[in-house]
Structures are given as structure tokens and as C-alpha cells.
């Protein structure tokens, strides 16, 4: 075990995978000598050189499109999009090419690639450095979507994503990049499966479900509830496509009250999918309607950076509502 931040873990995991498999290459803007603007590819250029750590032009379409061509030709590229807010010039490549290649070729071709992107707010970045676009990707058949919240999960899931024969959108909560340090398993085979939610806190009174950047606020709310004598059962989904319906439905069936937390805009957001699944599968076990605590249906604001996020106070209000229903 080594104590690491999330962003250190990413660089180290990439290093481990590149050492293990020479087909693994990294490409993106500033991933070379600069080591990435967040240092998520730090030192890789020195170790592996320009053929495997490729500084790309400033073009997300070129990055994702080229990653697909590399994957088809036998490499296993890990592309970095500098901010998830900038993925949209490459969105057509993801939606029209990457996601559909296996399907449209009848399984002849596959696209084993990872597109990493820092996401989420709370960094005083305004709407073009703060958004949470995961719903777009979950809604696109053919993409897997992973969004971890801890350094260890990041290591285990990034490894799984790199070794996956399917394309994976790997979202990274940038405000947690350096927020926490923890012991991360060094074992170069340590990997975590998708669709296996982590129980961050055991409890019996209310289920709190979140993922990615919003896990930090959700855990704070869990702590605050404990002080009030309310025991929250906190689930971290870790992956959104596929996601762990079993853990969610079991917890909801046992406790009957659920609050869903995500900083993405409310309408059409991923937690709405969870709410719909709960309504379809577990309505008779609910003691209160599921409540969503989310970002607002505005562009992500600059001046109200903190107020936009679903912080502990808003989560506590929602919990009160489901407890008192």
C-alpha cells in the first residue's frame, strides 16, 4: 500500500498498465512533458517516450477519433480530455463512432479504449470547467461509464477500464483529485468490477445514494445525520453503466426511504433513472417517495459555485422530508 491522492493514483495506474502491456498508449493535450494539466500523466513521457505518450493537437475530435483508430489497429489507448466540459467537439466521435463500432460491424471490430475526463464543480471554474455530463454518455448505447470517488476505487476501476474490450468513459471528480489521501493497493493486478456499489456507511433509517464528486458532500451529510441520531446507509455507485441495481434495490427494500444525490442538473439526470427503477421495482417497499438532491437546471454558475452543488444542508433537508413523510 502507498498513501496517494486520486490524481497520483491515476498516473501510477497508467504507469503500471503501460509497463504490463505495451499496447497501452496515452494521448491528449499536454499529456507529454507537462504530464497533464492536473499531472494525471506525470512522468509517463519520461518513461515511455513520444510513441506511447502522444501530445495531440488541441482537438478533442482528433483525440477521440484517433484513439478509436488506434484501438481498431491493436493498441489500447487511454485518451485524456482536459475537462469533461471540452468533450463536446469529440462527442460525435464518441456517440457515432466509438459507441457503435462493435454493434454496427456485427462484432467484427471492437473499441478497447478509455476516455478519461475530469468532471464536476466546486473549483470556481464557471460552466466550462465544472459540468457533470455523465447522463449524455449513459444515454448512449455502447459506452460504459465509470465515476469513482476514492483513490483506491480509481486504481481498481481504471485498471478494469484499460483491460476492458469495450470503450469506457472514465470520469474523475477533479475537486477530489487532491482532497483525500489514502492507502492504495500497489498490487499491479488489483482491479475492481463494475456495477458493484460500495457501502460507505452502514445504516437503517435512510438510504443515501450518490457517486463521483458528490460523494464527499453525501458522506458529510451522513456524518451530520449520525450526530442527530439518524443512521444513514450510504451507497457509492462507482459505475453508472452498468450500475448496481441489486445493492440499490436491496437497501431500498430494507429501509424504505431514499435520497439520491448528484450535482448534475436535475432534469434527465442519472439519479432520475435510479428513481424510476426504484419506482418500477420497489414501490410497495417504499415508505416515502424517493427524493433527488441535484444541481439545478441552469448552466453551472460561476459566482454561486458552492450554492449550486448539492451540499450537506440540502441533503439534510431532503432526508428530513423523507423521514417525516
Amino acid at each position: 500500500m502507498t498513501v496517494q491522492t486520486m490524481v497520483q493514483t491515476i498516473a501510477r495506474t497508467l504507469d503500471q498498465e503501460m509497463a504490463r502491456d505495451e499496447r497501452v498508449v496515452v494521448l491528449g493535450q499536454d499529456v507529454g512533458k507537462r504530464g497533464g494539466v492536473f499531472l494525471a500523466t506525470e512522468k509517463l513521457f519520461d518513461t515511455y517516450g513520444p510513441d506511447r505518450v502522444i501530445d495531440s493537437p488541441l482537438s478533442e475530435a482528433a483525440i477521440i477519433g484517433a484513439a478509436l483508430g488506434m484501438a481498431v489497429h491493436g493498441l489500447r489507448p487511454v485518451a485524456e480530455i482536459q475537462f469533461s466540459d471540452y468533450v463536446f467537439p469529440g462527442f460525435d466521435q464518441l456517440v457515432s463512432q466509438v459507441a457503435k463500432l462493435r454493434y454496427r460491424s456485427g462484432g467484427q471490430f471492437e473499441a478497447p479504449l478509455v476516455v478519461r475526463m475530469p468532471a464536476g464543480g466546486g473549483v470556481k471554474g464557471g460552466h466550462h470547467h465544472s459540468q457533470s455530463p455523465e447522463a449524455h454518455f449513459v444515454h448512449t448505447a455502447g459506452l460504459k461509464v465509470v465515476y469513482p470517488s476514492t483513490p483506491s476505487d480509481t486504481r481498481g476501476l481504471l485498471r478494469t477500464a484499460i483491460r476492458d474490450d469495450d470503450p469506457v468513459v472514465f470520469m474523475e471528480p477533479k475537486r477530489l483529485y487532491r482532497a483525500v489521501k489514502e492507502d492504495v493497493p500497489d498490487d499491479p493486478e488489483f482491479a475492481l468490477p463494475y456495477a458493484q456499489a460500495a457501502v460507505r456507511r452502514e445504516g437503517d433509517d435512510v438510504v443515501l445514494i450518490s457517486y463521483g464528486a458528490s460523494m464527499a458532500e453525501t458522506l458529510k451529510a451522513g456524518d451530520a445525520l449520525a450526530e442527530q441520531g439518524v443512521s444513514a446507509h450510504v451507497l457509492d455507485l462507482r459505475s453508472l453503466m452498468p450500475w448496481d441495481t441489486t445493492a440499490v434495490l436491496e437497501a431500498v427494500a430494507r429501509i424504505g426511504r431514499v435520497v439520491l444525490v448528484s450535482e448534475a442538473p436535475r432534469t434527465g439526470g442519472f439519479v432520475s433513472e435510479i428513481a424510476a427503477t426504484i419506482a418500477e421495482e420497489a414501490l410497495d417497499q417504499l415508505l416515502a417517495p424517493p427524493v433527488r438532491v441535484t444541481g439545478f437546471d441552469t448552466p453551472y454558475p460561476y459566482a454561486q459555485d458552492r450554492e449550486y452543488l448539492p451540499g450537506p444542508n440540502r441533503i439534510l433537508k431532503a432526508v428530513k422530508r423523507v423521514l417525516e413523510y
Binding site: A61, M70, V72, H73, G74, D92, Q93, Q97, L101, R104
Partner: peptide
């Protein structure tokens, strides 16, 4: 490479394959 309708969307993949080559 299996053809896709969106115009020019296959050109960057060709470049990626060429970089791999």
C-alpha cells in the same frame, strides 16, 4: 473499417490507425 453515415467521422479514426502503424 465498417462505414458510418456521419460525414467525415471516419477520417480521424484512419489517422489513429495510421499513428498505430
Amino acid at each position: 473499417f465498417t462505414i458510418a453515415s456521419p460525414i467525415a467521422s471516419h477520417v480521424a479514426p484512419a489517422v489513429g490507425a495510421a499513428i498505430s502503424m
